[in-house]
Nucleic acid binder design. Structure first.
Lengths: 242, 242
DNA sequence: TTGTAAAAGCGTAAATTTAACGTTTTAATT
DNA sequence: AATTAAAACGTTAAATTTACGCTTTTACAA
């Protein structure tokens, strides 16, 4: 294992999760106070990321970022774009930050998004990490606003054509949870009755003989996504048509 | 302008074009004969590419690759994936090749595809360059077979949702040419009458008062794609449903 | 034990879209 | 003026989508 960094190559992760009926992204606080009136104080947020190690693949690096954030392994990761423009560093804050860490001014960043199921409890999260609603992000460093926008665009298109939605919900989910996930991510309203009909026609969305527990009204039936079934049927009729 | 190379970062281009009712990709011959019986002779093909220069962006690099290939500028380029695994170099030929050029063993390659209109004449092409049908590619170096496969998958999905098809045909095209382009790329058969109906309903596919010339049968009407109109209408009803 | 409220779940019918065809028109060539 | 092959138009049945109304189920409170 070669732990040296490739000093101009990093992987940044857009970690996404549904919470409070909104799409959230995990950010890391970036602080630097040089106690110099003439220099700006850095107090903003960036995407979690890591330099690529000599003996790590790109995907492995994305996994490692997540493991360091949460202590847990994460299987599904989606590479969506690479950022390597010479002019990625725009603000004085960015330049200052990069110099203070002795990093290269031009870094190539391969960006991934990772989706965390909304029922997952992430313990052990560092204080410097915080979830933000995608619709009200704080000031971000570098080109990370752009990266998040691109990630969201990719999610919105993949959620239609790929079985990505199941990463957002619990392993066992209700149809209403599934519908709410679509509605939140795509920012649309769906008719519950038609949604149910469409989902019922999908053999890979498997009804269980199991119901919600601890709800004060009629408990709803639980479903699972069968990856096996999905990968053996050709899917061209997508759940959502918008 | 800083012409030094970033020695672990390259851009490879999958240059695509429709010809003879098939999707073709432009490859560059890779030859190296070390006149040593114990070493393999290299005589295969690779994607055209270039190291990224210190003062070039990634997209600019893709443009430069195309310009060096053809002497012409190319506007639309699509970044679809980045390859940076430590194990990209698998064969002895690859290792030999890399060493013979004094290049780094681990290179990060940002891959783009560029689409050349089928009516475009590319003169001045170097002898080492050749078009190959996607369905019958020669032996390829590195992971370039994988890169081409990934590019094709991306094209097939983008051709449905984005106005990518118009890059493949001439600026002024007939509906049958457009249909053939879809059929060839997606490897499907479409009903001409239904295709016409669908296309006619698209305001951004504009009929001209102009017809084909020099054909021996009824000349067909020419159409143009209006980018302006397209970008001002929300398109969710795609031309192809397969 | 029974009533009630709220969410879960089922059903129907009109409107739209797709799919599968037959038919007519056009313009260059014979 | 006849021929021919591609271009272009039209029709209808099937499938899908959309827009609703209505019933069932369960936990909880009366």
């Amino acid at each position: 294992m070669d732990f040296r960094k490739i000093d101009n190559l990093s992987v940044d992760c857009v970690v996404l999760r549904l919470e409070d009926n909104a799409l959230n992204v995990l950010l890391r606080k970036r602080t630097l106070n040089l106690y110099n009136e003439n220099l700006p104080e850095i107090d903003d947020w960036v995407l979690p990321g890591h330099y690529v190690l000599k003996s790590n693949n790109l995907g492995e690096t994305a996994n490692r970022v997540f493991k360091e954030l949460t202590g847990e392994d994460h299987l599904n990761k989606n590479q969506f774009r690479t950022y390597g423009n010479a002019a990625r560093i725009k603000s004085d804050r960015d330049l200052l930050w990069v110099r203070s860490r002795g990093a290269k001014v031009r870094t190539i960043t391969v960006a991934y998004y990772l989706i965390v199921a909304s029922n997952k409890d992430l313990l052990d999260m560092d204080d410097s990490l915080k979830w933000f609603k995608l619709k009200s992000l704080p000031q971000l460093g570098f080109d990370h606003q752009q990266i998040i926008n691109d990630a969201y665009e990719d999610v919105k298109s993949k959620i239609i054509t790929d079985p990505l939605i199941f990463d957002f919900v619990a392993i066992k989910f209700t149809l209403n949870e599934l519908q709410m996930a679509f509605e939140t991510i795509l920012d649309v309203e769906l008719d519950n009755r038609n949604f149910r009909k469409k989902v019922s026609s999908k053999s890979y969305i498997v009804p269980l003989e199991e119901k919600q527990k601890g709800v004060s009204k009629k408990p709803s039936r639980l479903y699972m996504f069968s990856k096996d079934v999905y990968s053996h049927v050709v899917e061209t009729d997508y759940i959502i048509n918008k």
